[in-house]
Design a protein around this nucleic acid. Structure first.
Length: 804
DNA sequence: AGCACGCCGACT
DNA sequence: GTCGGCGTGCTC
C-alpha cells in the first residue's frame, strides 16, 4: 500500500474480515498512518521489513478499481526512475480531487473566552482565540487569519488549559460520479385506475419511449417533477439514480468520410500496421508539416481496434481541444475518451471511468493521458513527439513521450512517435537502430513548403529601438500581404528572460569556452557568467571573434512588436497571442475565430502560434529575431530553435496561396538557421549530434538537475553548496566506477529568482544511467544526504528539458 | 505532509 | 529553572 504523502516506502496493512472481499489492487483505502488518517492506494503486497505491529485498513473507498492491476509495475517503474514517492506517482496519474485526508480543526473551549478577556494571556494566544471566537478553523485557516505560523506546542498547551478543542475531520473526495433521476413505469396495476390527465400523459410518454430522466420529462410537461413525486407515492412509477457522464464535448462533431491515402501514406501504414500485436516496437514517423500524419494515425488506430486493442493517443497541450482530437472523434465517435486540461474535474473523472469500465477503446489527450487506465494497450501514438509540453515541470517531472515508450514496453505494444521536426533524441535512436523509421516527405495537397528568406539583422543599422527589428524587407512583405488581402503572422519568442549578450557587429553571441552555452550578464558582479559550469568573463569584454566592443544585450517582447505594427500599418487590424493575452477562458477560441473570419490582419505572437492551429489565410510568417531562442543558456537551444522555426514556417501557405517566410537573424550563417531555412532536418541533426557527442551532452549521456530554491538568498546558496560538496565527496569515494559521473555546479540558475525564491541548480550527468541514478539516489536519500529544511526546497529533475 | 520529540538560548 | 523556537526523524 502506498500513502498519498511524500514518503518513499510502501506499507503493509491487514484487511479486516468485513472488507476482505472488497479490497482489491487499484482501489483506494483509508488507513491510520502515524497519528493521522490518510488515503492510500492498494498496489499489491509489500514485504514487511520489521516485526512492527500491522494496523488494519479503516475503509475501502472504491467499489471498483480506479486503475487496472497491470498498471502497477508501470507506476513502480516511474517512482523509481523519477525518484518520486509511489503514492504521489499514482496521485499524479489519477484525476484530481478524489482523495481524503483528515485535518485538525480547532474550536474555542470553555476557558478560552475568559482567557481572551484576561490581561495575562500572551499576544499570540489572544490572536488565536480571537480568530476562533468567530468560529472553528483548521490550522491552515488559522495561520492565514493571524498571519503567522502556529506552533504545535502552543496548541497543546492551550488544549491542556481547555482554551480550545482539537477535532479531526475528514476532508476531500468530493468528486463523485454524476447521477440523474430516472423515471420508470411500474408494472403493477396501480395506475390502471383513473389517472389525472397530466399523469396519464406521463404514463403514455414512458410507455412509448421507455425510462426517461426527470429533466427530460420536464421539457415535455413543465410540472413533471411534482407529478412524478405523487405518482411515485401512488406506486405508479419508480424513480432510480443513474450515473451519467458529464458532457465535455461542446459542439457535436460530424462524422467524417475516410479520405484516400497518398502513396506515401499507404506505404507508411503498410509498414507499421503489421507490427501491431507483434511485441514491443517503436517507430519514428517523420513527416513534413502538412504531410497527413494524422490520417496515418487514424488508419493504424482502425487496424488496432479491429484487433480488439486499446489505443492511446497523446497530443501536445494547446489549451483547447486539438485538431487531432477532433478528427479522432469524428472518425471513432463514442469509442473515444478525451483527457485534456480543458475539462472540469468532474468531466475528467467521468472520462477516466469510461476508460476503466472499457466503454472507450481509444483515449486521446495531452501529457497526463499516458496514465489512461487501460488494461492492455496495443498501440500508443505520440503526435509532435518533440513538443516540450510533454514534459511536466512541477511535482512528478515526467516526460510523457518517454513514458509512452516505457508503457509500450510493459504492454508489448507498438509505439508511434510522430513529428515534422523530430527530437535529436528520437532521431538518434533511429540511427542506432533502436527505433524504426517511417517517412512522409511531401505535403498531401502537393502545396510546396513555404519559401524562406533570411534577413541579416546586423546589417540593419537603424537605432530607433524596436523599429530596428522591423527591417524594410519585412515591412515590404507585410505591406504586400495586406494589399493582397491576406494575413500575416509575426513571431517573436519573447518569453525572454534576462537579456543575453550578442556582438552587434558580427552577430556572435558571447559563449562559454567550456560549455558552448550563452553567457548571461550578472549586473551585480559586472560579469558574464556560464550557468552550467560557472565560467566568468568581465562585462567589459570585447567580442572574441571580431574584437568589436559593441556588445548589445538583446531583449524585447511581443508587446513592443504589436505597438510597432500598429504604428507602421495604421490601416491593419493587429492582435496579439501570448500567455499574457490568452489567459482568460475562451480568449483563444475568440481569437482563432476572429482570425478565421479575417477580422485580424496581423497576428503577433509567441510560440503559442506555432502550435497545431491551422490558419488557412496566413501567407506570410515573419520571424522578428530567431536569435532569441538560439542563444538561451541551454544546450538544447539549437534544437528548440530549429523546431520552432520549422514549425512556425509550416504555418504559412496552408490554404490555396503559397506561403512566404521572412526570417530575421543576427546569425544568418549559423547551421541551425541554415538548416531551418532549407527545412533540412538531417543536416541540422548531423551537425548537432557531433556537437552533443563532443561535449557529452544527451543523447550521449543522461542528466539529472537538482534544483534548490528558497526565500533566503544566503541559506539557499549554502544549501546548494552543501549538496554540491556532498556529491563531490560521494564521487571521490565511489572509486573508478563512479568516475564517469560528472557533476557541474552548483550555480545560480539562469532564472535566478522566481516568485521571490532564489534558485540554484546542480547538474549531474553520466553516460552510465545506472551509475548516475545510484549517485543521485544516494545524494538525495542516502544516509549522508543533506536534510531538506522546511523553508528550502530541493527537487530532482531526471532528464531535465529546460535548464533554466 | 504533519506531527512529536529533543535540544538549546532567553526569559520569569 | 521553564518557555518556546527550531532541527531531526517517523509514519506499517
Amino acid at each position: 500500500m502506498a500513502v498519498v504523502l511524500p514518503v518513499y516506502e510502501t506499507f503493509s496493512y491487514s484487511v479486516p474480515a468485513h472488507l476482505s472481499d472488497q479490497a482489491r489492487p487499484g482501489m483506494r483505502v483509508l488507513v491510520p498512518f502515524g497519528r493521522r488518517t490518510v488515503t492510500g492506494y492498494l498496489i499489491g503486497p509489500d514485504r514487511q521489513t520489521d516485526s512492527r505491529e500491522i494496523k488494519q485498513i479503516l475503509d475501502v473507498l472504491d467499489d471498483s478499481p480506479l486503475f487496472p492491476e497491470t498498471m502497477i509495475p508501470f507506476f513502480q517503474w516511474i517512482a523509481s526512475y523519477y525518484m518520486h514517492p509511489p503514492g504521489l506517482v499514482v496521485n499524479t496519474a489519477l484525476p484530481a480531487g478524489l482523495n481524503m485526508t483528515d485535518i485538525a480543526v480547532l474550536t474555542i473551549d470553555e476557558n478560552g473566552i475568559q482567557a481572551l478577556a484576561s490581561s495575562s494571556t500572551g499576544p499570540v494566544e489572544k490572536s488565536i482565540l480571537a480568530a476562533l471566537s468567530e468560529g472553528p478553523a483548521s490550522i491552515k485557516q488559522l495561520q492565514k487569519k493571524i498571519g503567522r505560523p502556529v506552533p504545535w506546542a502552543l496548541i497543546h498547551r492551550m488544549r491542556q488549559r481547555k482554551w480550545l478543542l482539537l477535532d479531526r475531520r475528514i476532508e476531500g473526495g468530493r468528486i463523485r460520479p454524476k447521477t440523474i433521476r430516472m423515471v420508470a413505469l411500474e408494472k403493477s396495476e396501480n395506475f390502471s385506475r383513473r389517472l389525472s390527465r397530466q399523469r396519464r400523459a406521463i404514463c403514455d410518454i414512458l410507455k412509448a419511449e421507455g425510462d426517461l430522466s426527470v429533466p427530460a420529462l420536464k421539457k415535455r410537461i413543465p410540472t413533471a417533477a411534482t407529478l412524478v413525486r405523487g405518482m411515485q407515492k401512488a406506486g405508479q412509477v419508480a424513480v432510480y439514480e443513474k450515473t451519467i457522464s458529464r458532457d465535455p464535448f461542446g459542439d457535436p462533431i460530424e462524422p467524417d468520410t475516410t479520405p484516400r491515402l497518398t502513396g506515401e501514406q499507404t506505404r507508411a501504414v503498410r509498414q507499421m500496421a503489421p507490427l501491431l500485436g507483434r511485441g514491443f516496437k517503436t517507430v519514428l514517423l517523420a513527416g513534413v508539416t502538412g504531410s497527413g500524419k494524422t490520417e496515418v494515425y487514424l488508419r493504424l488506430t482502425r487496424a488496432a481496434i479491429s484487433k480488439k486493442m486499446q489505443v492511446l493517443v497523446l497530443v501536445p497541450e494547446i489549451g483547447l481541444i486539438s485538431q487531432t482530437e477532433r478528427r479522432f472523434r469524428a472518425r471513432f465517435g463514442e469509442r473515444v475518451a478525451v483527457l485534456h486540461s480543458g475539462l472540469s474535474r468532474g468531466e475528467r473523472y467521468d472520462q477516466w471511468l469510461r476508460i476503466v469500465k472499457e466503454e472507450a477503446a481509444i483515449a486521446i489527450g495531452a501529457r497526463s493521458c499516458i496514465f489512461a487506465p487501460f488494461t492492455d494497450v496495443g498501440l500508443i501514438i505520440v503526435d509532435e513527439e518533440h513538443d516540450s509540453s510533454y514534459k511536466q515541470e512541477t511535482g512528478l517531472r515526467y516526460n510523457a513521450r518517454d513514458l509512452a515508450v516505457v508503457r509500450g514496453r510493459h504492454h508489448k505494444a507498438l509505439v508511434i512517435l510522430g513529428s515534422a521536426t523530430p527530437s535529436v533524441q528520437s532521431w538518434h535512436n533511429v540511427t542506432i537502430g533502436k527505433y524504426d523509421l517511417a517517412t512522409l516527405s511531401k505535403r498531401i495537397n502537393r502545396q510546396p513548403l513555404p519559401e524562406i528568406r533570411t534577413v541579416d539583422l546586423s546589417l540593419s543599422r537603424d537605432e530607433r529601438g524596436i523599429q530596428r527589428y522591423i527591417t524594410p524587407q519585412l515591412q515590404k512583405e507585410i505591406r504586400n500581404t495586406l494589399d493582397e488581402g491576406n494575413q500575416a503572422l509575426i513571431f517573436l519568442n519573447r518569453r525572454g528572460f534576462s537579456a543575453f549578450p550578442i556582438c552587434a557587429h558580427c552577430g556572435q553571441a558571447l559563449r562559454c569556452k567550456n560549455c558552448d552555452i550563452s553567457l548571461t550578464l550578472h549586473k551585480k558582479a559586472n560579469a558574464f557568467r556560464c550557468h552550467y559550469c560557472g565560467f566568468t568573463k568581465a562585462a567589459t569584454s570585447a567580442c572574441p571573434s571580431c574584437g568589436s566592443e559593441d556588445i548589445k544585450l538583446l531583449g524585447m517582447g511581443t508587446e513592443k512588436v504589436q505597438e510597432a505594427m500598429v504604428q507602421l500599418f495604421p490601416d491593419a487590424r493587429v492582435a496579439r497571442m501570448d500567455r499574457d493575452t490568452m489567459n482568460r477562458k475562451g480568449a483563444i477560441v475568440r481569437l482563432l475565430k476572429d482570425l478565421k473570419h479575417r477580422r485580424i490582419d496581423i497576428l503577433v505572437g509567441t510560440q503559442m502560434v506555432a502550435k497545431g492551429h491551422d490558419f488557412p489565410g496566413i501567407t506570410l510568417v515573419g520571424v522578428v529575431c530567431a536569435d532569441l531562442t538560439l542563444n538561451f543558456p541551454d544546450f538544447r537551444s539549437g534544437e528548440r530553435t530549429f523546431q520552432l522555426l520549422a514549425q512556425v514556417a509550416g504555418r504559412a501557405g496552408r490554404g490555396e496561396h503559397p506561403g512566404k517566410v521572412v526570417l530575421q537573424t543576427f546569425n544568418p550563417d549559423h547551421f541551425t538557421i541554415g538548416a531551418a531555412k532549407n527545412q533540412d532536418f538531417k543536416k541540422f541533426f548531423d551537425q548537432e549530434i557531433s556537437f552533443r557527442k563532443a561535449l557529452a551532452y544527451p543523447p550521449f549521456s543522461r542528466m539529472v538537475a537538482v534544483r534548490i530554491s528558497g526565500k533566503d538568498p544566503q541559506k539557499t546558496a549554502e544549501m546548494a553548496g552543501k549538496i554540491g560538496t556532498n556529491g563531490r565527496r560521494m564521487l571521490a569515494n565511489a572509486g573508478p566506477g563512479g568516475s564517469r559521473v560528472k557533476l557541474m555546479g552548483p550555480i545560480e540558475a539562469p532564472l535566478a529568482r522566481i516568485a521571490n525564491r532564489h534558485r540554484w541548480q546542480l547538474l549531474i550527468s553520466s553516460p552510465d544511467v545506472a551509475g548516475l541514478h545510484r549517485l543521485v539516489h544516494e545524494l538525495m536519500q542516502g544516509p549522508n544526504s543533506v536534510a531538506t529544511g522546511r523553508d528550502i526546497r530541493v527537487s530532482v529533475d531526471v532528464d531535465p528539458f529546460f535548464l533554466m
